[in-house]
Simulated scan of single mutants.
Amino acid sequence: MNLTDATLVLLLAARIHGTDEAIRASAKNVVKKLPGGKRDLIYKVIDSRTPLDLVNYLSQHLDD
């Protein structure tokens, strides 16, 4: 798994479930499958107070 795959999982969790708990659970699941150097973004999602807002923000700024 790479960071693009993990980001896609988070975006799908936000789209399908739309809850902070679902996004946090998905992030905890994929962070174990990423190489150590690529885990920073996922840990920020896990530690965020509002992971849904963070993932929505990330999705709006993917092209930047």
Rank of each mutant, 00 (worst) to 15 (best):
M1T: 14
N2L: 09
T4S: 04
T4E: 06
T4L: 11
A6D: 09
T7C: 01
T7K: 01
L8K: 14
L8E: 08
V9F: 03
L10D: 05
L11S: 09
L12H: 03
L12R: 10
L12W: 05
L12V: 10
A13K: 04
R15N: 02
I16E: 01
H17Y: 12
T19D: 00
E21P: 04
E21I: 13
A22Y: 06
A22V: 07
I23Q: 02
R24F: 02
A25E: 10
A25C: 04
S26C: 05
S26L: 02
S26K: 05
A27F: 04
A27D: 03
N29A: 14
V30N: 04
V30T: 10
V30W: 01
V31T: 03
V31W: 01
V31I: 11
K32A: 14
K32R: 15
L34S: 08
L34N: 02
L34P: 08
L34H: 09
P35T: 05
G36M: 04
G37H: 11
K38D: 12
R39N: 02
L41G: 08
I42G: 00
K44L: 11
V45L: 02
V45A: 02
D47W: 07
D47H: 10
D47V: 05
S48E: 07
R49D: 09
T50Q: 03
L52N: 03
L54H: 09
L54V: 15
V55W: 01
Y57N: 07
Y57D: 07
Y57P: 04
L58A: 13
L58C: 11
L58I: 15
Q60F: 09
Q60Y: 11
H61S: 05
H61K: 10
H61V: 14
L62Y: 12
L62Q: 10
D63V: 15
D64L: 14
D64T: 14
D64C: 11
D64G: 15
